[in-house]
Amino acid sequence: MAYSDKVLDHYNNPRNVGSLDKNADNVGTGMVGAPECGDVMKLQIQVDDTTGIISDAKFKTFGCGSAIASSSLATEWLKGKTVDEALQISNTEIVNELSLPPVKIHCSVLAEDAIKAAINDYRTKQTKRVPVAEAVA
């Protein structure tokens, strides 16, 4: 299969690889997928308490090149957005940006799910306001 230049670029130079402190109040972690399905994405956001803007985003992905590129791109797009804006990111935008073929659409869906899961985790923490170690869901 031929990969688009953008997928290759993200694969060769993945952006924002790493981990944030999953126990921090202002960090939301989303982990989606399953090893037996061939892809697992962990996506984390760090939200600025005063501005409500996502100040940092990190990812780690087990999966094919398109899955790696989708999550790498997602972290790029997340930074600088408010949480509400981030919720607007849809998988079709990822598909278009990376020119993903039909068989790879599920990679973009997974990235969207990871964003939503991370935001959900962040919001849950905000309402509870107690540090909980349940990032790995």
Partner: peptide, 20 residues
């Protein structure tokens, strides 16, 4: 890049996790 490798290195048993 692998979240699984990271978890294993942290001592997490992947088979005990309920994956979606």
């Amino acid at each position: 890049l692998s979240p699984l490798y990271e978890m294993v290195k942290e001592g997490i048993d992947l088979s005990k996790i309920e994956w979606a």
